[in-house]
């Protein structure tokens, strides 16, 4: 995959002195879905805003498809569509008019056939003559996506696309994102929701305090940093761990019925065999066994705590 957006040494310090971004380096690949994950104030929106031309960088460079975002802003911006976090729409416009406006702003000649198809794809066609103030929150979100796609961009930024929307609509939005990717659009989204990144992203970037802590393929990330837990249900409850098993990182549940063993999937030896042998030696009998993989949520919390 070739690089479509290249960010190097990007920093942003706002007038009040707040450093929103610290030396960000990132290459975004053509056609991928990249999720930027992080808490409020991590710098996700600032990063997007700089690439889209809404905020000026303090230091560093960004290129989009080989063009510099400042020197060649016409080239870069014409390739980008932005869906902002807030439902910012002119209340008295109709869906159709606002789409025509967006397309024209990006220098494209009117193309009613394309806009009609876009509205149909986003299940908005029936509402094309409705005023925006009459639409539900979910529909407004779709209108924002339609506006961002009205000029047929190669890259789509979605800033918190499912913030404050219900579960059904969120899944609906994920489907839209998948369909867009299939059509060749590179998608960068910011989110608070780990499950969102886990569900739809190819790669995940974790941001915290203006820094990009890591960027990794979703599956590699979970493999690399993921820990597994082996949960052992005991036949008979125990009060204390037998001495022969104290060397294992085991947790005994308060009712003495369950042992939890945490191990690293990447290490050469997980220690499971030795643990089971030690249990046998100590005379403990098992009722059941279960393993769980840590989620992105756990990885994220661990990374952020480590800072």
């Amino acid at each position: 995959m070739t690089t479509i957006i290249s960010i190097s040494g990007l920093s942003k310090t706002y007038e009040g002195g707040h450093q929103a971004l610290k030396q960000i380096n990132l290459d975004i690949k053509r056609g991928e879905i990249l999720a930027l994950l992080g808490p409020n104030g991590a710098g996700k929106t600032t990063l997007i805003s700089i690439i889209c031309g809404l905020v000026s960088p303090t230091n560093g460079h960004v290129t989009v498809d080989g063009f510099d975002i400042i020197d060649d802003f016409r080239q870069t911006r014409s390739r980008i569509g932005l869906v902002p976090q807030e439902l910012t729409l002119a209340a008295f416009d109709t869906v159709w008019n606002t789409l025509c406006f967006s397309r024209g702003l990006f220098g494209k000649k009117p193309d009613p056939a394309y806009l009609e198809k876009l509205l149909k794809d986003l299940s908005l066609y029936d509402k094309r003559n409705s005023e925006l103030r009459t639409l539900s929150g979910g529909m407004k979100r779709r209108v924002l996506i339609a506006k961002a796609l009205s000029h047929q961009p190669q890259i789509l930024f979605l800033d918190e696309p499912t913030a404050g929307v219900d579960v059904e609509l969120r899944k609906d939005m994920w489907q839209i994102v998948h369909r867009l990717r299939e059509s060749g659009v590179t998608i960068i989204l910011t989110t608070h929701y780990i499950e969102e990144a886990e569900e739809i992203a190819d790669r995940v970037g974790i941001m915290h305090g203006g820094e990009l802590l890591l960027v990794e393929g979703k599956h590699i990330l979970m493999q690399k940093l993921g820990q597994k837990k082996l949960i052992i249900e005991l036949k008979e409850p125990i009060q204390h761990l037998p001495e022969s098993m104290l060397s294992y990182a085991l947790e005994l549940s308060p009712d003495g019925q369950q042992l939890t063993y945490t191990y690293d999937t990447q290490s050469n030896s997980t220690g499971i065999t030795a643990l089971l042998q030690a249990m046998h030696g100590a005379g403990l009998s098992m009722k059941d066994l279960n393993t769980t993989q840590s989620s992105l949520q756990d990885i994220f919390v661990n990374l952020v705590r480590a800072r």
Binding site: L54, F73, R77, L82, L105, G107, K147
Partner: peptide, 8 residues
């Protein structure tokens, strides 16, 4: 935001 992010 839309005007500011457009190639204009």
């Amino acid at each position: 935001y839309e005007v500011m992010s457009a190639p204009i």
